[in-house]
Design a protein around this nucleic acid. Structure first.
Lengths: 116, 116
DNA sequence: AGGTTGTATAGACGTTTGTCTATGTCATGT
DNA sequence: ACATGACATAGACAAACGTCTATACAACCT
């Protein structure tokens, strides 16, 4: 079910996005707009346990550890993931509300077109 | 790790995105990752008629006409919109399949988390 | 044909982004 | 206490991006 509570999610197909709202949303899309970050987010979101250790993410790429760390930071700032330190390791988990908001926004487009 | 080919929408939450697929998808998200383009897409998608004349889009922004034209080109290249010239004017319309694919990808995240 | 208007392309330019190396910080174990 | 391993931050730098002006192209209208 869609979680259109709390002043969330005006659908794209009903009225155009206000300028301010567009900037918020664009930030999230921009975070997903890099192949490395999209794969990172994918790896995090696809874990049945709900979380992944950075130590499992870093070696999956041909990039330096600081670069991965930087991408994770952008995902976090966009509200797509959360991180928690437990002992030596840091775990990242997806924030479904954010993904859901974006999904709802995009889904409204095709829904509207289909019914028209 | 065998990955499916040209089909649509492997959900994020089942298995991580393959590298190639991630680059395709990231291109679309990147296109939506700019406030101007997101608003343009929103304006196009929200038209009940299904299409908008460029002449209606351009004056809605405080940007030069070539800049808007450039953004529309990126949206087109990302597969988010189509354009058609009719007489003097060019009309843009949304391509719901593309928006839908991205929505499905994002929705799978929250769906999985909710059920888990 | 020539002038006018709508849209796209070309080239330039400052800003942002993605990556790196070097270093800092935090928790652990000896 | 100190050394070690995991992650984050700082600073540098080339590549990509967003914007502009100038110009080209396309369709209309005298």
């Amino acid at each position: 079910m869609s979680n259109q509570g709390q002043g969330c999610c005006e659908p794209l197909s009903e009225e155009p996005l206000a300028k301010e709202r567009a900037e918020e949303m664009a930030t999230v899309f921009k975070a997903l707009g890099d192949p490395v970050r999209l794969r990172l987010f994918s790896m995090i979101a696809s874990k049945p346990s709900g979380e992944v250790c950075v130590c499992d993410l870093t070696p999956a790429f041909d990039l330096s550890q600081p670069t991965i760390s930087h991408h994770l930071k952008l995902l976090r700032q966009a509200g797509l993931v959360d991180s928690e330190r437990r002992g030596t390791w840091v775990y990242y988990r997806a924030r479904p509300e954010t993904a859901d908001r974006m999904a709802a926004l995009l889904a409204s487009v095709s829904a509207d077109r289909a019914s028209a």
